[in-house]
């Protein structure tokens, strides 16, 4: 009788244990079935860990930087001066009498802020272009120094940029007549001296102003992040793309500004040194400016 009970007990244990083992085996199968990923899934997980969304941003950056940014900047620095050279040869500079009545156009503060902006901004453009075309100069210490100068000039430029934004904000707000100024390209396509619709600043100057100040702020921020790798990799890639496209637009404006002030209007650079423009010039090029 006792033996009978014992054997039933043992049998029960074996059966229960057997069921348990089978259950756990099935559970194991279920787990491994759930976790089995394809090698492509694993590879994707690894790439996400080491280099972010490479397919989305890395490839885009590689294509743009590898094939387009260099060409874009080359086009900007060749096409714009070429157009201006043609303009200078065919239409020529505008001459205004500088002996007549003078109008006080830029205050001392305006001129000081502008000279700091001009120097730091020119350095930014030159060192930026040096970096982009670094292979022409063989890289190395020269381009490395250019990058350092780029950073320092950017830090300097932030201050006059901010001051310019405040002191010229009101004069730079777009007006309706700026549109007609743009349609006639500021009257630069004719030799005639007809009054062009522009306030203290014309449509082109306003465009440059907004690109240099607001655009400059974007350039400064994205540049700062790129310099120190201060964000995740995909953000850095995106910022580098923005920095390059916006940079090309700003360089285009910069070259235009230099041509206009140094060549296209003879003697107009004087007003940024002395503060005075001739009445003759203001009445034609800034006909809507009320200087009284």
């Amino acid at each position: 009788m006792q033996r009978g009970i014992l054997s039933v007990f043992l049998l029960t244990i074996i059966l229960v244990a057997g069921l348990g083992v089978e259950a756990s085996a099935q559970e194991g199968l279920a787990i491994s079935g759930l976790s089995a990923g394809s090698s492509a899934d694993y590879y994707q997980m690894m790439i996400d860990l080491v280099s972010g969304h490479w397919q989305k941003y890395g490839q885009l950056f590689t294509t743009l930087q590898g094939q387009w940014f260099g060409k874009l900047f080359l086009a900007v620095i060749i096409a714009i001066p070429a157009i201006f050279l043609l303009h200078y040869l065919i239409i020529g500079a505008k001459h205004f009498g500088h002996d007549g009545e003078q109008i006080y156009f830029f205050t001392l503060l305006n001129r000081i802020v502008h000279v700091f902006a001009a120097i730091s901004f020119t350095l930014l453009v030159v060192t930026g272009l040096l970096t982009i075309f670094g292979s022409v100069f063989g890289g190395g210490t020269f381009i490395r120094t250019a990058r350092t100068v780029h950073l320092v000039s950017a830090m300097v430029f932030v201050f006059p940029c901010f001051l310019m934004f405040i002191m010229w904000f009101k004069d730079m707000l777009p007006r309706m007549y700026d549109i007609s100024w743009m349609f006639m390209l500021g009257g630069y396509l004719s030799k005639e001296k007809k009054p062009v619709p522009a306030g203290k600043f014309n449509g082109g100057q306003k465009g440059y102003f907004w690109f240099a100040t607001l655009g400059g702020a974007v350039m400064a921020y994205t540049g700062f992040i790129i310099w120190g790798f201060g964000a995740d990799l995909d953000t850095i890639r995106l910022y580098t793309i923005i920095h390059n496209f916006l940079g090309a637009a700003i360089v285009a404006f910069y070259l235009t500004h230099v041509y206009m002030s140094v060549f296209a209007i003879a003697g107009s650079l004087e007003s940024m040194k002395t503060g005075y423009k001739s009445k003759d010039e203001v009445d034609i090029l800034h006909s809507r400016y009320d200087y009284n």
């Binding site: 080491v50 280099s51 890395g58 930087q65 670094g134 890289g139 190395g140 990058r147 850095i236």
Partner: peptide
């Protein structure tokens, strides 16, 4: 000696 440390290669590399 040529490298300027711009970091573009790091942005382009799929393997970090």
């Amino acid at each position: 000696k040529t490298c300027i440390g711009c970091g573009y290669c790091f942005m382009a590399c799929p393997f970090g």
